[in-house]
């Protein structure tokens, strides 16, 4: 499988490791009133979609960047590859 890295171009999937669902970016506020429940959901609840699925991929044997790879679990087609940093910033993260 080839991953089209946004900075580096096409790279072999063997250079990457997969962390899990991209929802891990949305870490709850630990100081919030409902932090215990929010962290329970963050830690243990995962969607298991048949279709489009966004995941965090780490380019461990490459430039060490974190990516959000969107792929279709039914067809294995990779539809989108973004820098995780850009995705996090678009969702309001400062860094």
């Amino acid at each position: 499988m080839i991953i089209n890295h946004p900075l580096l171009g096409p790279r072999d999937a063997s250079e990457f490791v997969v962390k899990g669902a991209a929802s891990l970016i949305d870490r709850p506020d630990w100081q919030a009133e409902n932090a215990t429940d929010a962290f329970h959901d963050y830690m243990y609840l995962r969607d298991n979609p048949a279709g489009e699925h966004a995941e965090l991929w780490y380019h461990e044997q490459g430039d060490r960047s974190w990516l959000v790879v969107t792929r279709n679990t039914l067809t294995h087609e990779v539809t989108k590859v973004e820098m995780a940093r850009d995705v996090a910033r678009a969702r309001g993260r400062s860094k």
């Binding site: 063997s14 490459g62 430039d63």
Partner: peptide, 9 residues
């Protein structure tokens, strides 16, 4: 390019 060769970075 940074990659692997024979499993070595």
């Amino acid at each position: 390019a940074r990659s692997t060769m024979e499993h070595m970075g």
